[in-house]
């Protein structure tokens, strides 16, 4: 057999005894008598199945023990000629290992990003909640008058976030009238209106009148269908209404 072939090549018999091998084979693998001894124990069954039950010429992957590594992947090309077979062992490409390594790094990054995204989402929702809670401050104007300006879009979450504080403060101060100022409100959502209705009801049950001021035309349109349900007083703007109620109180 030609021993100068630049790849590990073994000639074996039916029992997988090594009959001849190339110089490169000697460079790669420790010298043994049986092919089994250079194949990883977990790959023995595969070797047997492939070589015995396979076709005359076949290709398969196998893990082998080399001089350098306890486990290395090889692609084997084998061909039977009578009772002897030739097996060429081609080492799995280095590029492949590189790609494998990169794939692994990518995976690691993906799973980290996954958690980071989750954390950011949590941070964002707590920031949103905090913003909501801060966007409806209760302001005492006089003994009988309080102002509750709302900032941002009127949503269910927003009213839920501000109502506890507003109702508690109103209970402590007992004003006759609460002015809910819409000047700083953007979009009014339907669910927000329903929640607002609940809050207004609480104020009413505590004996306070609620007056909505500073509605924009667009907001007025959204609120119109709820007008009777809300049982609210509306005033044109903050200046007029504050003057009206304060003047009433001090004159």
């Amino acid at each position: 057999m030609e021993t100068k072939i630049p790849l590990p090549l073994f000639k074996i018999d039916k029992e997988f005894n090594i009959l001849e091998f190339t110089g490169t084979a000697a460079d790669f693998f420790p010298e043994t008598e049986s092919l089994y001894q250079i194949i990883d124990r977990d790959s023995h069954t595969k070797l047997k199945n492939c070589l015995i039950n396979g076709d005359a010429a076949l290709t398969f992957e196998i893990n082998a023990k080399t001089k350098q590594e306890p486990l290395e992947l090889f692609k084997v090309f084998a061909q039977w000629k009578g009772s002897e077979a030739f097996c060429v062992f081609v080492p799995a490409n280095q590029d492949y290992h590189l790609v494998h390594k990169q794939l692994e790094d990518l995976q690691k990054r993906l799973s980290e990003t996954n958690f980071e995204l989750y954390e950011k989402k949590e941070q964002l929702s707590s920031a949103m909640d905090r913003t909501n809670r801060l966007s409806g401050p209760y302001i005492e104007l006089s003994d009988t008058l309080a102002l509750l300006p709302i900032f941002g879009d009127l949503s269910e979450e927003k009213i839920k976030a501000i109502q506890d504080n507003a109702i508690q403060k109103a209970y402590d101060n007992k004003p006759e009238r609460v002015l809910v100022d819409f000047t700083g409100v953007g979009v009014v959502e339907d669910s927000g209106v329903l929640q607002l209705k609940d809050m207004v009801l609480v104020f009413k049950q505590m004996g306070m009148d609620v007056v909505v001021i500073g509605l924009s035309p667009a907001q007025a349109r959204v609120l119109k269908p709820y007008r009777t349900e809300l049982e609210l007083d509306f005033e044109r703007n903050a200046k007029v209404s504050i003057k009206k109620w304060l003047v009433k109180e001090y004159l």
Binding site: T45, K46, N49, C50, G54, L58, F60, E61, L73, A92
Partner: peptide
């Protein structure tokens, strides 16, 4: 893989 149906 053992049955030589897929690659590593």
């Amino acid at each position: 893989w053992q049955a030589n149906e897929i690659s590593v």
